[in-house]
């Protein structure tokens, strides 16, 4: 047994984080006709909320629960199950590094070390300037281009540790140059 007890009964106002604005809520509501239950909109709603806020704040969880008529804990339940969702704020750009077997065999471990060294952060942390956050994912399904990493929505293929300097300074490194459907916006630039 642990000697430490953490308080889950209360949440201070400053810890609730940002909430969802009306436009975001309206966008979530536009998904209602797609599914017979409101609960099924939760995953699209979380995507939309994370695109808008950068992460899923406590306040957003409460608002989503209200919007979708769910107990608030159900939102927490789903948010924490999926690795894509962050429960704390992150940088303007998030690097998702693949660490599947192929990527590790092809030098992914060195890329990871290089990345952590250059950014000076560990997984799920954000650089002090609020530019970068970083996480790993088990497989990005781009194994023929191993090792690979995602910067926001853009996939970088065949990345070796030496390429990192070039990629990190490229201002277009997260720009996905393609016509996109408007259903899910590109992740908004968030303030750390």
């Amino acid at each position: 047994m642990s000697w430490r007890t953490i308080d889950r009964r209360t949440a201070a106002e400053q810890d609730l984080g940002p909430g969802l604005n009306d436009a975001v809520k309206e966008k979530i509501r536009s998904f209602f006709p797609r599914y017979p239950t409101k609960r099924a909109v939760l995953l699209p709603a979380l995507h939309i909320a994370q695109d808008a806020l950068g992460y899923i704040s406590l306040r957003a969880m409460r608002e989503l629960a209200e919007l979708l008529e769910l107990p608030p804990s159900a939102v927490l339940d789903v948010v924490t199950f999926y690795t894509h969702f962050w429960t704390h704020s992150r940088g303007r750009k998030t690097i998702v590094l693949c660490r599947s077997l192929t990527c590790e065999l092809m030098g992914g471990g060195r890329v990871r070390e290089g990345l952590e060294q250059r950014l000076g952060i560990g997984e799920h942390e954000t650089t002090p300037d609020g530019q970068w956050s970083y996480m790993t994912e088990e497989c990005l399904a781009a194994c023929e281009h191993a090792p690979c990493l995602l910067i926001n929505e853009k996939l970088h293929k065949g990345v070796q540790a030496e390429d990192l300097d070039r990629i990190l300074v490229d201002p277009e490194n997260d720009h996905l140059d393609m016509p996109r459907s408007t259903l899910f916006d590109a992740p908004a630039e968030t303030k750390p």
């Binding site: 889950r8 009964r9 609730l16 406590l58 804990s73 939102v75 927490l76 339940d77 199950f81």
Partner: peptide
């Protein structure tokens, strides 16, 4: 909350 061996029982803080 959580997944796999990190699963825990929890409440949403403040609820």
């Amino acid at each position: 909350v959580g997944r796999g061996s990190r699963c825990e029982i929890d409440v949403l803080p403040g609820q």
